[in-house]
Computed example of a mutant assay.
Amino acid sequence: MELATLRDRLAVDDVITGYAVAVDDGDWAAYRGLFTPDGRADYRSAGGIEGDAGSVAAWLAESLGAFAMRQHLIVNRRVRFGTLEQDTGDTARVQADYVNPMGFAADGAGPAAPDLVCGGRYAFGLLRTGDGWRLSEVVIREKWRRLPGRTGAAATG
């Protein structure tokens, strides 16, 4: 593997990790900063919206606000580099699985067990820009969800 490819793989991985941290921490400015100016996200399979990064960040801030605890785990990352205008390596596709436990505000008695856990697969599209790798597209495919007071996992699509 060439050194440049290895550097790109690490940089792309850093963007994906930054995405998870921004969502978990509710850092919506950082979330928006991970995207290209025309970048889009699609959360429809999880009951959300599809739109530009700013609109989706506002929707996430509102819909995730009830959860004081979020711990987004993105694993099994498969990275594939592509071409743009004949230059190898200017685009990347990442397929990755996720598990996302979330908990409502605790009553002050210490950490609470998650009230909602969901999992599925992401499809990330990235583009090399003058500012480094940025997300051009995020598509979430929720596969299952475990809700409060229920055992087992419910398939969502």
Results as ranks from 00 to 15, higher is better:
Leu3Gln: 09
Tyr19Pro: 06
Arg128Cys: 01
Arg44Glu: 06
Pro111Ile: 08
Thr156Lys: 03
Arg150Glu: 14
Asp24Asn: 08
Gly89Lys: 04
Ala105Cys: 03
Leu3Glu: 02
Gly47Cys: 11
Asp131Thr: 12
Arg77His: 05
Ala11Trp: 02
Ala112Pro: 04
Val75Tyr: 09
Leu10Tyr: 10
Ile140His: 13
Met1Glu: 10
Ser136Met: 14
Ala106Gln: 09
Phe35Ala: 00
Ser63Val: 06
Gln86Glu: 09
Pro101Arg: 04
Asp25Gly: 09
Cys118Thr: 11
Arg145Gly: 04
Ala96Arg: 05
Glu50Cys: 13
Glu85Ile: 00
Tyr19Cys: 05
His72Cys: 04
Ala30Pro: 12
Phe124His: 06
Trp144Thr: 00
Gly18Pro: 14
Gly120Pro: 15
Pro37Trp: 08
Asp97Thr: 10
Ala11Pro: 01
Gly108Thr: 02
Asp107Gly: 06
Gly48Thr: 09
Val56Phe: 07
Ala30Gly: 12
Gly47Asp: 08
Phe104Met: 08
Gly119Arg: 11
Leu60Arg: 03
Asp97Pro: 02
Ser55Ile: 05
Asn100Leu: 15
Arg40Lys: 12
Asp27Cys: 10
Gly51Pro: 14
Thr17Phe: 14
Ala41Ser: 07
Ala46Ser: 14
Ala105Ile: 05
Leu60Val: 00
Arg134Phe: 10
Val56Trp: 04
Leu116Gln: 05
Gly132Ile: 02
Asp87Ala: 11
Asp38Ile: 04
Gly65Met: 04
Gly54Trp: 08
Asp27Ala: 13
Tyr31Val: 00
Gln71Lys: 12
Asp13His: 13
Ala123Cys: 12
Phe35Gly: 01
Trp144Asn: 03
Asp97Ile: 07
Ala61Phe: 05
Ala154Val: 12
Asp87Asn: 10
Ala68Ser: 08
Thr156Phe: 00
Gly125His: 10
Val15Tyr: 09
Lys143His: 15
Thr91Trp: 03
Tyr43His: 07
Pro37His: 07
Gly39Trp: 02
Ile74Thr: 02
Pro148Thr: 05
Ala58Asp: 15
His72Glu: 07
Phe124Tyr: 09
Arg40Glu: 09
Asp24Cys: 11
Gly65Cys: 01
Phe124Ile: 03
Glu62Ser: 08
Val138Asp: 12
Tyr43Leu: 05
Val139Tyr: 10
Leu116Cys: 05
Gly149Tyr: 11
Gln95Ser: 01
Met69Gly: 00
Val21Phe: 12
Ala92Glu: 02
Glu85Ser: 10
Val138Gln: 15
Arg32Gln: 15
Arg121Cys: 10
Ala46Lys: 08
Glu50Ile: 06
Leu126Arg: 03
Gly157Tyr: 10
Arg134Ala: 12
Gly54Asp: 12
Arg146Gly: 07
Ser63Thr: 10
Thr151His: 13
Val21Trp: 12
Gly82Cys: 04
Asn76Glu: 09
Arg93Asp: 05
Arg141Asp: 15
Leu84Cys: 06
Arg150Asp: 12
Gly120Gln: 12
Met102Val: 00
Thr5Cys: 02
Ala123Ser: 13
Phe104Tyr: 11
Asp27Lys: 14
Tyr19Gln: 09
Val94Ala: 03
Ala46Pro: 04
Arg70Ser: 05
Met69Ile: 04
Gly152Asn: 11
Gln95Tyr: 01
Ala96Pro: 05
Phe81Ala: 00
Tyr98Gly: 01
